[in-house]
């Protein structure tokens, strides 16, 4: 048996930054301001079911759009020359070097009335409002999280053994079948981690809707933020429910992933 000593720092890390905070959130969620046990926070949390569902919906939508955009892209990148691949991946990474809020501000400027997009479309005779709605929020989220979808899928795809592809070709598969029978199944782990990395943060995100959405586009992350001002108990209860939802989602994803791999 190998020594466990090297893992000690990580265990402490998890204890201090993961387990203890979760226990504290749990404790706050089940107590009132005086520290007595109560379930009232959860009944209060139910008021926000609609916002909750809408947030999950926006998160799912953004994840789906990200996947639709990222998958073909990642595939195309793996078909390029090695040096070009690095350049393209780099170009996708560069926006992430900038602060998250700055990027959202940039979208506000792009989408606002008489902004560049509005101006360009007006010349073509199309008039409309592009900010302050669910569309703008989804757009902002897709932009924000697309690299998190592209990178894992690309990494998994580029690891696929070329020999497998050649074998499939030798055995008479056309390029569609090579994709369907070899590349697609082998890229599933990348898709799974991509979906997880996009869905989880986008379900709990805040501020994006505040900047790009209208009065009806408030997300659960914003609600938690606001409630925490005066009522940390209900805020913790909502956070806990959100965590449970995400946990269930992750389990489902894992389940789905395993099955695919077996098939």
């Amino acid at each position: 048996m190998k020594s466990r000593k090297p893992s000690v720092p990580y265990i402490i890390w998890m204890l201090v930054f993961t387990l203890i905070p979760i226990v504290m959130i749990g404790f706050t969620a089940f107590t009132d301001k005086q520290g007595n046990f109560t379930l009232e926070n959860f009944s209060k949390a139910f008021f926000y079911t609609d916002v909750f569902m809408k947030s999950l919906w926006i998160a799912l939508l953004s994840t789906a759009v990200c996947l639709l955009l990222a998958y073909p892209l990642a595939y195309m990148i793996t078909r390029m020359k090695e040096s070009t691949q690095n350049t393209v991946i780099m170009l996708f990474m560069i926006p992430m070097w900038m602060n998250f809020l700055l990027r959202i501000y940039a979208w506000v400027t792009l989408l606002q009335d008489n902004g560049p997009i509005d101006m360009a479309l007006s010349i073509l005779g199309i008039h409309g409002t592009y900010i302050g709605n669910t569309f703008a929020v989804t757009l902002g989220m897709v932009y924000e999280y697309l690299p998190f979808m592209v990178l894992p899928i690309y990494t998994v795809m580029s690891k696929i053994d070329n020999g497998l592809i050649e074998a499939a070709q030798d055995l008479g598969s056309n390029s569609f079948n090579v994709f369907r029978k070899v590349i697609a199944p082998l890229s599933v782990p990348g898709i799974i981690s991509g979906i997880t990395m996009v869905f989880v943060p986008s379900a709990s995100t805040f501020l994006v809707a505040q900047y790009l959405g209208g009065t009806d586009d408030i997300m659960i992350g914003d609600i938690i933020d606001k409630i925490f001002w005066t009522d940390q108990n209900t805020g913790s209860a909502i956070s806990l429910i959100l965590m449970i939802f995400i946990f269930v989602f992750l389990i489902l994803m894992n389940f789905f992933g395993d099955e695919e791999a077996i098939a």
Binding site: Y48, D50, T215, I223, I227, T230, T234
Partner: peptide, 15 residues
Amino acid sequence: VYSYMQEQFVKIQAD
């Protein structure tokens, strides 16, 4: 009253 006010304000926004 202030907590109540904050709670109601969040509810208006969530509604």
